[in-house]
């Protein structure tokens, strides 16, 4: 083994090790910061209550939006099979409307209650989050 090849091999191995460690740290970190997406049926099935932040998506049920002042809103999200009551304090995005698709982020509280700290804004009124389309298709409620 010549000197240059040896040198190069060592260089290569050292960078590989540093690289590997870096990737491990990143992936570890990634797993801690994932926000899962569920449909109402899935969230009831999983029943992951407590502190983990998740996203919930579906249609806003008609005539379910109630405001009790101080920017606090209650509404129900449905996927055609199950429904979840959501409580949210804040500004609703412009395109938030009954019978339209919505995605909220927050904590599932069991008993079909959800406390949202974010209602995600989308820009086009015909836009449906892909996750919502997927969950509606799975429950057979999707209409083209």
């Amino acid at each position: 083994m010549t000197d240059t090849v040896k040198k190069r091999l060592i260089k290569f191995l050292v960078s590989l090790i540093i690289f590997g460690i870096a990737i491990l740290i990143i992936v570890y970190n990634l797993r801690d910061n994932i926000v899962y997406f569920y449909s109402p049926s899935e969230i009831i099935e999983n029943n992951q209550t407590g502190s983990q932040i998740v996203r919930l998506g579906g249609l806003v049920e008609s005539e379910s939006v109630v405001s009790d002042g101080d920017s606090i809103f209650h509404f129900k999200i449905t996927d055609g099979q199950e429904q979840i009551s959501v409580k949210y304090q804040g500004i609703l995005p412009n395109l938030f409307a009954e019978e339209k698709g919505v995605v909220v982020e927050g904590i599932y509280m069991n008993d079909r209650r959800f406390i949202a700290n974010k209602v995600l804004a989308k820009h086009d009124e015909n836009y449906m989050p892909p996750e919502v389309i997927k969950s509606l298709k799975e429950t057979g409620k999707w209409q083209e």
Partner: peptide
């Protein structure tokens, strides 16, 4: 790259939708 592609990969492989929070980027 990992943060952007990870959700695409899990959706493709496990049919599991998820998003990567901004915290991931800040911490990393």
């Amino acid at each position: 790259f990992l943060g952007t592609m990870y959700p695409l990969a899990t959706d493709l492989l496990y049919n599991q939708s998820l998003t990567v929070g901004p915290q991931y980027y800040a911490i990393s």
